[in-house]
């Protein structure tokens, strides 16, 4: 038994034709350079490729010393947040076709955190403020043996948006307050506090609200919406911060 097959070659789609894209990457080698410098690279790309593919091509074919973080390469692990054309994005979720390739594409490390090498920054201060809001379930009593903690669909939906955070630091490092005053907790820590403050199973909202009521807590937020724009998961970060402010004024979630 034979199946009819198409013998004629399929017409080549425009999306399948490669073209040259110029990337200008802010390079910094702490052992050789005093200051970071911008370096040009021409790479052959398809419109369906991502910035991460371009960085791979540079690293694998042109300059093996280019350093950047990436793990899953599919927008889940949150390793490859970087500043692409002046906006914080995940390199693995930014498609070439969505950028203006008639001009060079500028890629640099996220701002506000200490630069270590090329596109890699020291994430410790970021995780330090994340830890400080106690981002884990603190129930007042033990669950019954063999039972889960029951939660209604509505109670779950209350904090659904902020459960999506992947801790990529795109929001915190896009925040102008964080750039100028590193004491500020930053949007990511507040988002993760929000996730537990509004969780009906958690009983330590007061503790987290007290932490965020600090001088460097939510009141430093100037609602510039940079964080909401930067979030690769589409979390309404500024709204989450505003909800924490409301909870602080009420004194309870």
């Amino acid at each position: 038994m034979s199946t009819a097959t198409i013998d004629a070659p399929a017409p080549v789609d425009d999306a399948l034709k490669p073209f040259i894209v110029t990337l200008i990457v802010r390079r910094f080698n702490p052992e050789l350079d005093d200051e970071p410098k911008w370096v040009d690279y021409d790479v052959e790309m398809f419109s369906t490729d991502r910035i991460l593919d371009a960085l791979h091509k540079i690293k694998w074919e042109q300059d093996g010393s280019l350093s950047f973080r990436r793990s899953c390469a599919h927008g889940i692990c949150g390793s490859d947040a970087m500043r692409i054309n002046g906006r914080n994005r995940l390199a693995c979720k930014t498609l070439i076709k969505d950028l203006d390739i008639t001009k060079p594409i500028y890629v640099e490390a996220i701002k506000g955190l200490p630069l270590e090498k090329d596109l890699i920054v020291d994430m410790d201060p970021f995780f330090e403020s994340f830890r400080e809001v106690q981002p884990f379930l603190i129930p007042s009593k033990k669950a019954e043996p063999g039972k889960e903690r029951i939660q209604s669909v509505a109670d779950r939906a209350r904090f659904d948006d902020t459960t999506k955070c992947i801790l990529c630091a795109a929001c915190t490092s896009s925040c102008p307050i964080f750039w100028t005053d590193g004491q500020y907790f930053g949007p990511a820590a507040i988002v993760n506090a929000h996730r537990f403050i509004f969780d009906s199973r958690d009983d330590a909202a007061k503790v987290r609200l007290d932490i965020l009521n600090d001088q460097e807590g939510v009141w430093r937020c100037r609602t510039t919406f940079n964080c909401t724009d930067a979030c690769p998961r589409g979390i309404q970060v500024t709204q989450a911060i505003a909800e924490v402010k409301q909870a602080l004024m009420r004194g309870k979630p």
């Binding site: 910094f28 005093d34 200051e35 955190l113 201060p125 590193g182 930053g186």
Partner: peptide, 14 residues
Amino acid sequence: MSQTIDAPRTPVRP
């Protein structure tokens, strides 16, 4: 790069 800016959240204030 000369490190003139402190790392964020140092020293951590309670």
